[in-house]
Write a protein that binds this DNA or RNA. Structure first.
Lengths: 220, 220
DNA sequence: ACCAATACGACACATCCATGCGGTTGATTG
DNA sequence: CAATCAACCGCATGGATGTGTCGTATTGGT
């Protein structure tokens, strides 16, 4: 929580958007909305980053396709110096890659540029209130990421036992067979036994391959 | 797209909820909403699964804490037989684990039980329309998952070279030193050389540990 | 011109791994 | 009760790995 927001009730929103028309339109919209103010707007992340520590915004409306530093990189940079600031993407990109890059970088919401003014104001309120505004289709993509990762790497019908998972986990920590045996209170030969079964089930022939595959499948 | 939904404009919503009062209240709400119908409701996943293939619902309102099979397991089961069906969670649980399990299992949205009737009806429309309705705080948790995974594992200042990354990648595919050498057109001993450097930089002493660590750091 | 970093190559050797074979025990399930 | 399965244990062996030490070549930077 920064000092400014304690002392006033308005939410400071700044804009990073290279298109001047859009930028000015947004500024007007924000300024005409009760509870919001727009103390500054920028046409590049570099400009924004130069001032962000004096302006201390509560929320940043961020474009992606910008001259110089991309909006994605801008998120990382600004959250490096102002970890509490909220970043709301407002862009034309609706492809998975951009969406996930932005969210991984720390954006708290993602809107597309044809969003109606009223919805945008509402979304800013949502973000400030602890939510993550997204368009319907983007929300579905985000949620869909989990159900696809739930399937993970189309597991070809193999199941691994708890014990085998433990063994793999120990191997991934760099333990040798005998160390794994000590850790799990079994003999080296039993470790071998389990690893044989793991290799057979996963159709691999080395520790590294087994560990890598297991990690991609979310087993360890 | 199932046959039924082609021939009528109403959305079939069924309910799985063990509390009779809530179940009946929801049924009334759905039936009184234009465009929605509620042909059936169940107090357990088992009951629902027995009829779902004849009822052919468009959407399922699903609780989690149920007698017998949990709602989470119910999602997996029902999507096994009806992959197109939408599942909207309606539960009291708001902890990360339940949320992510449900989404991984294939739920398309997640609401909590104190949701207002009007919002619930709206959410059903959103889900049918290709969205993923969630409460604000749950949306933030979902998005927060990405930003935390984006950080990966705090890297203790080490960098590996492109060549070293290639080597690790080959090892993770299960290739032996000589196979890696063949793949990258270098000798086995050079592979050894690179692996020595990798081990030194990462402070590990086995392939598995190196591969696991590299994957957690997003290097491969 | 020199230094540091990177990539490449070679030899040696103790240890570890992958895989073959053979077993026993207990719990679950048809 | 027989069958299955997970977990447990042992032994043998060729080949792979981890680590030591020694080189050369190229490249980018001060």
């Amino acid at each position: 929580m920064n000092k400014k927001s304690v002392h006033n009730t308005t939410t400071k929103v700044i804009i990073v958007e290279d298109n001047q028309t859009i930028r000015e339109g947004l500024t007007l919209l924000l300024e005409s909305s009760p509870g919001l103010e727009c103390p500054a707007s920028y046409e590049s992340c570099e400009d924004m980053l130069a001032e962000v520590e004096t302006v201390l915004p509560d929320l940043i409306l961020m474009d992606i396709g910008l001259p110089g530093m991309s909006g994605i990189e801008g998120i990382r940079k600004v959250r490096g110096v102002q970890p509490e600031v909220l970043v709301l993407m407002l862009t034309v990109y609706e492809d998975n890659e951009k969406i996930f890059e932005a969210l991984c970088a720390g954006a708290c919401g993602y809107l597309v540029k044809n969003t109606k003014p009223a919805r945008l104001i509402e979304a800013i309120g949502e973000a400030v209130g602890g939510g993550s505004p997204m368009t319907a289709s983007i929300a579905r993509k985000v949620v869909g990421f989990f159900s696809s990762s739930g399937k993970l790497e189309a597991v070809d019908d193999v199941k691994i036992t708890d014990r085998e998972r433990e063994i793999l986990s120990e191997l991934s920590k760099g333990n040798s067979y005998s160390q794994v045996g000590d850790a799990l209170f079994i003999s080296v030969d039993t470790v071998r036994y389990h690893i044989r079964n793991i290799y057979r089930k996963m159709q691999v022939h080395s520790q590294s391959e087994a560990v890598a595959k297991a990690m991609r499948r979310g087993w360890i």
